[in-house]
Design a protein around this nucleic acid. Structure first.
Lengths: 235, 235
DNA sequence: CGCAGTGTTGACTGGCGTCAAGCTAGGTGG
DNA sequence: CCACCTAGCTTGACGCCAGTCAACACTGCG
């Protein structure tokens, strides 16, 4: 499982939001504790309910975080892009992962045992601040999504989800391309609706030229119009 | 605004989740930076959109955190009980408060400027861990609520909200009393439904003897039955 | 006493979830 | 290279939950 470290391992760490702003010395220390490994597409990183013993960061690839209830209803919490941390919600609470992490592409992952991270924070409090910053931003996002699901129509939420994904992973190819496989099932699970509703809305928009989809590939063609759907209070 | 400090100020701090596990010396330091003041019932602590410059902790009383969108639709994010911290989502991001905080009882509040807290964390990383722990738990709760709103029926969500509030502030008087004013409007805004639906469901339950309500006062009579509504997948 | 805030109740309606059937593109094996 | 299979998607019909509109009851306060 242990992977050959790249020639300059600390260079890789520098790109992680988890360790931004840390001196080279600290990075070397962090690297020494890191477990770095590669996973194939569609592999489980951690399971919901499993005891949370690690903190993760994604070096390359993509990870899908989703939560299910007893009846199998699923919420897609978020997609993790390269450089982002994940699996940190249950950190320091001695609890279990509240969601599942799965790769959707071949991915390289780094992880640290909780105890190890704790020691690193003791020596470099900046790490804790970095985690706080990310966790705060995510908490804020969740509050917004919760409000949206509670008060807004399905098509408006779908528009917002698409824009959010585009902002997160538009890959700034200039175009409105969303750079990773995204099924309609995924879109539905992200905004709290059914595959059927998502499908109806998307085919409608495709007819109107707002976007194009092919298999699991989505391209937003008229960002302005989609934005206005996301903003319009009406109906 | 500055309030007379209680004789043993550090005793008060010891009860806050924000500073649990810190040595007496640290508490004295923290106290020196604290601004402690009292607010009347129904007073705004911070406004949504305001620049987030402080971190808050509630000494006594109760605070209501809510978020509104442009159209005035409101989500009740949570109630803060004595000892809990709040206003920390935007912390260290240089951003604005994503929600509004209002007292629902006469309250005593402590707060620290961001810069001051930053310095304290530098000297006592344990504080950052405390914040992380709380933020993690809240993020987890938000994920669950989001999944619930997205996939479950209104009456089931109402049952869960009542149980959650009871667990948080049941005051363990043995009975199922919820120890603070809670309007039906509030209940509706917490679980993402309308006052009307909440009213219908609650009067139904009251008829069936599951709970009693009078004005803004709620008492859960048959926790078991409410629990089973919260758990039942059916209909 | 009147008013404002809060809660109740009924009637209506429509968004969207559910059920069901069928399509299409790719992958796989013979 | 074709036959088959499956995952992913589309589309229609139907019905119900719960949101909307509307009117009234209750209570505490100025």
């Amino acid at each position: 499982m242990q992977h050959d470290l790249p020639a300059s391992g600390t260079q890789v760490l520098r790109g992680l939001e988890l360790f931004s702003g840390l001196p080279e010395v600290a990075l070397a220390e962090i690297l020494a504790d890191a477990q770095i490994y590669e996973l194939d597409k569609d592999t489980v990183v951690f399971r919901q309910g499993e005891c949370a013993e690690h903190c993760y960061a994604l070096i390359t690839g993509r990870v899908r975080i989703s939560q299910s209830d007893e009846e199998g209803e699923q919420l897609l919490v978020r997609f993790i892009s390269a450089g982002e941390m994940f699996g940190t919600v249950a950190l320091f609470t001695g609890g279990n992962y509240p969601a599942e992490g799965t790769t959707t592409l071949k991915s390289v992952i780094a992880r640290w045992p909780e105890a190890s991270l704790l020691r690193l924070i003791e020596r470099h409090p900046r790490i804790a601040l970095n985690i706080l910053k990310v966790t705060g931003a995510r908490l804020r996002e969740m509050q917004e999504r919760l409000r949206e699901v509670a008060t807004q129509r399905a098509h408006r939420r779908i528009a917002r989800v698409l824009l959010r994904l585009h902002a997160q992973a538009g890959q700034s190819t200039g175009s409105g391309e969303i750079s990773f496989p995204l099924t309609r099932q995924d879109i539905a699970a992200m905004c709290g609706t059914t595959l059927h509703t998502a499908s109806r809305v998307l085919t409608d928009w495709e007819k109107r030229g707002l976007l194009t989809t092919h298999r699991s590939h989505v391209v937003l063609r008229r960002l302005k119009d989609i934005q206005s759907i996301a903003d319009e209070p009406g109906i």
